[in-house]
């Protein structure tokens, strides 16, 4: 049997505030096979971003967060690892691409310096020259053919699309097993976003990297993912292979989300019912051939 890259079971997350205990995730389960691209789709506040941050081990650092359930990454239960060991996985076995590339790169360091830092995660003693060479290769893969100019630049001197490519190159430079993409490129122009997503898709296919793709935009998900989980208010409401979910959406919330995908052809605003009662209907599972 194949060991899944990521296996989340019954994950719950709550925050203890002064007044009360607020639960944000009510037991979600999700898995990603090696090389598989899985999307987690939902509106803002549905719990998709916190899920990503638990996988990365970032939320575990917050004292107010209460987490239960299991997150197994490459066969290792994250809960049993120390904070130190989880930190060692970040940037090496799992990496992340963010929503706004320009503000996610440090404004006062050159790209070259930041890339060097990323490469040092797997190879702490790598020198500047070797780092440059490796980074230049990666930049070529994301179709940046003048790496030297980019290395000498600060993020604000490059376009958003350029920064996004740099981020993708950084994310894949250490050959991670899992790439988490949190609404990648939402801050970019639609055309630029589409271009970089296509590029990212080719690259992860080439490197055989698993992807957890977080988005609110089903249109983008359809282009990118193999399998999709729909999350609504901290619960998975529908899951299955992309094709099947898009063809036969079983859950009322999924249908509402699909109606909300903007279409260039126009036709006015989609008609989403004001009646969210339907959204609390039980989980809809599309059988996927073989792996579950």
């Amino acid at each position: 049997m194949i060991v899944p890259t990521l296996d989340i079971r019954d994950l719950r997350l709550g925050f203890r505030t002064y007044e009360a205990y607020v639960e944000v995730l009510h037991g979600i389960s999700l898995n990603i096979a090696p090389g598989e691209r899985v999307a987690l789709v939902g509106e803002s506040g549905s719990g998709k971003s916190v899920t990503a941050r638990i996988v990365l081990g970032l939320l575990q650092l917050l004292r107010s967060a209460r987490i239960s359930g299991s997150v197994v990454f490459e066969g290792r239960d994250l809960d049993r690892l120390s904070a130190r060991e989880r930190q060692r996985l970040r940037g090496t076995r799992m990496t992340m691409v963010f929503q706004d590339p320009t503000s996610s790169l440090n404004p006062v360091y050159r790209i070259g310096t930041q890339f060097h830092e990323v490469l040092r995660r797997t190879e702490p003693r790598i020198n500047e020259h070797a780092a440059r060479e490796r980074a230049a290769q990666m930049l070529l893969e994301v179709s940046i053919d003048d790496p030297d100019r980019v290395f000498e630049s600060y993020p604000f001197q490059l376009s958003g699309g350029m920064n996004q490519r740099v981020m993708i190159a950084m994310a894949l430079a250490n050959e991670p097993a899992l790439l988490i993409a949190d609404e990648p490129g939402t801050a970019l122009d639609v055309t630029v976003q589409a271009q970089t997503l296509k590029l990212m898709r080719e690259l992860v296919e080439h490197h055989h990297t698993s992807v957890l793709f977080i988005s609110h935009n089903l249109g983008v998900v359809r282009e990118f993912a193999d399998r999709v989980y729909v999350i609504y208010k901290g619960r998975i409401v529908e899951q299955g292979p992309c094709a099947s979910v898009f063809e036969r959406p079983g859950h009322a919330y999924t249908r509402a989300l699909m109606a909300a995908v903007p279409r260039i052809t126009g036709g006015g605003l989609p008609d989403i019912g004001d009646e969210p009662r339907d959204f609390s209907q039980p989980l809809v599972v599309h059988e996927s051939g073989g792996y579950a």
Partner: peptide, 14 residues
């Protein structure tokens, strides 16, 4: 609170 610090964190920078 800036995204680039979260980015550094998510890359495991100590």
């Amino acid at each position: 609170d800036k995204p680039y610090v979260e980015m550094a964190r998510s890359y495991g920078v100590p």
